[in-house]
Amino acid sequence: MSAYWPWWAGAVALATVTIGYTVLSDRSLGISSAWERVLHWREEREIERLDARLGDDDALEAALAAATRREFGALAVASPATDAAPDPGPAARPPAPPRPAPLVTQAALLVSVFVGGLVAALTSGRFEVRADMGEAFGRIVTDNPVTMVVVLFTGGVLVGFGTRLAGGCSSGHGLSGCGRLRPVSILATAVFFGTAVVVSLLLGGMS
């Protein structure tokens, strides 16, 4: 069994994933929002269908401009007489944020996390099918299987409810959001990390 990575290797790898995803996709990495969208796939699919019907704003604008030119000549498009403040054109407008990543890509993200984890566990000799959560969980939280199931389910509900209420998790707020120095993400990260420290210290004190 190989040792866990040193801190600097972990830092470089996590940063590479976050930066690589952002550059390749022009979107923000967020696992909890991927979960939420996959879970609400019916609504999400409907939104995608409507979105596709409305089409691309830029394409629509270009088509309208072309139709106007055909009807009224190039001058009509170049100098709109009625506009007090002419539109400076698409280049000067603040860029619209890209649409949410297609639903299928978010499902692929979650499945890929599983595959990546499986490869890591197998190649580092840590893969072991077991019915508990490890020695430390048994020592610190509970070694009773029924209590364990209750604690894990309760913890999961708190994570699912809390991340969506706060609008992100350790990847969305912690890495992508703090990386952009967004105040809301820095606040959320400080609060969830601080709370986890307090709860863990209380848990450690009780065991």
Binding site: S32, W35, T154, G155, G156, L158, C169, V191, F193
Partner: peptide, 22 residues
């Protein structure tokens, strides 16, 4: 208004289950 309460719930859940969404 949801940021702080949500983060408190999430931090508690992570500490007791060991799991954030990924």
């Amino acid at each position: 208004a949801g940021v702080v309460p949500g983060a408190v719930l999430f931090g508690t859940g992570w500490a007791i289950s060991g799991g954030c969404p990924a």
